[in-house]
Design a protein around this nucleic acid. Structure first.
Lengths: 254, 254
DNA sequence: GAGTGTGAATAGTTTCACAGCG
DNA sequence: CGCTGTGAAACTATTCACACTC
């Protein structure tokens, strides 16, 4: 989603629905756990339970990849791991850069899940000169000035933005200009990118707000309804809660 | 999604589609920015551009909330901010606890976007006794032993899990037992919860894998196809790598 | 018998296009 | 006239249910 610019055909790609693609990593994780326990085969029912989906959906998802199961038996764990990894492109190495090494950037750099799949942190980049040279997760932080070199020298096509919101679009533009074509954005801003560049966003505050919505529903099963909107027309000064919203939306710069 | 346990009717709640709910925070952010610039009204076209969606979708979304616009003119910014905030339940105060104060937990604690909306960090909790008492984002970290007290004393209904994967389910169980009914899970695990509890997950590694999938598509517009699967059947002893997987949920070591 | 693979049915979402109001 | 609000159409995703294979 969130392709800043134009709509882009949702990349129905070869023929695998977007919703299915989004679940493949989930299946992969469950399968890897089974693989580590040396479980040879799983049924759709078992695997679905482990992945937190229902079995019909799982079977349908797999049917888009091909017929990798055996009727009456189930799926070969190792084989499926391989097929899904390949489909997701994890059999190759993806160098990524993380821009913005605050708490969040550091958390990402230290995150085991990155390295353990095809992803390799090629560089950590921060705008603060004081950060330059400091090691985070065993990698020396480099200054933003180096951004273009780094991207080009390492053939980086995936960038992670963990800067404050105010810096995100600018960083994004530079990443794209240097050749990055996929961006994972943690800054709470809508990024505008040219066609052909993919953006995915992760927004902590949005997730919480969605939870709050449902939470409110649970509570107000009696009183609250859509009784009377407080003020039909004007109702101007309602948003007096300005707060230090400023540009804070960011993500912990320093 | 990912309600660990049963399916649950996707909470179509009053009548607002889930997809719409997920976009309301986006609109709210754009509106808040306009409000700060004292812009009095916006058209669906302008607001849609600011939020990164198309205008038809935005109008449809708003139509579920009611008829808050003025034909020929647009929407009153302040009024809409209020209506959306109310719909999302942000006009009330939501105390949240964050469990697991590593880099990620610290990043969350420092995250401005939390406080600026109805969310208040009621407590930071960590299992490491060495962390206890240490201030993070101006709040003293408390030990896991206190978890139940904290939840009950503060009437917390939303919990954020930022622990390693291995601890997540256990923490989740305790949160739920203590009264939490909405959970935001950053640990790469499928959480199992009783009916009536909402879980949303944020998984960094999954997002990257989805990007890799699309990235691969862009690159392999020629060569790669689904030529020949390396090993059709057996392919067993591949899982010989145990590695320091520890609790890093991770996957695919080598 | 057990369990996959899939067409058909259902549900949900997005987009179109335009009537209707300010 | 400009722009909202919304039915209807198009598309996407999920679930059902069962034929078919091992």
């Amino acid at each position: 989603m969130a392709t800043g610019r134009t709509h882009r055909p949702a990349t129905r790609s070869r023929g695998i629905p977007e919703a299915t693609v989004a679940r493949l990593p989930l299946y992969l994780r469950a399968l890897t756990a089974l693989s580590e326990r040396s479980v040879p085969t799983v049924s759709s029912e078992e695997l679905a339970a482990a992945a937190g989906v229902n079995s019909a959906k799982l079977r349908k998802d797999f049917s888009y990849l091909g017929s990798y199961g055996t009727r009456g038996v189930g799926y070969d764990v190792e084989y499926l791991v391989y097929q899904i990894s390949r489909e997701l492109g994890l059999t190759q190495d993806w160098p990524v850069v993380i821009v913005g090494i605050g708490n969040l950037g550091a958390a990402l750099a230290n995150y085991g899940g990155f390295a353990s799949r095809g992803f390799r942190v090629a560089a950590l980049i921060d705008a603060d000169p004081a950060m330059a040279g400091k090691p985070v997760a065993g990698i020396a932080v480099q200054h933003t000035d180096e951004l273009e070199h780094i991207i080009e020298d390492n053939g980086v096509s995936i960038g992670v933005i963990a800067t404050p919101a105010g810096a995100a679009q600018q960083v994004c533009d530079r990443l794209v200009a240097a050749g990055v074509t996929s961006i994972l954005n943690f800054a709470p801003t809508v990024l505008t990118v040219p066609d052909g560049v993919d953006v995915r966003k992760v927004d902590l505050s949005i997730e919480l707000q969605i939870l709050a919505f449902h939470e409110q529903r649970k509570a107000g099963e009696d009183s609250v309804q859509d009784s009377g909107p407080p003020a039909p027309a004007a109702r101007t000064a309602a948003a007096d809660r300005k707060g230090p919203d400023g540009d804070v939306p960011a993500v912990m710069p320093a």
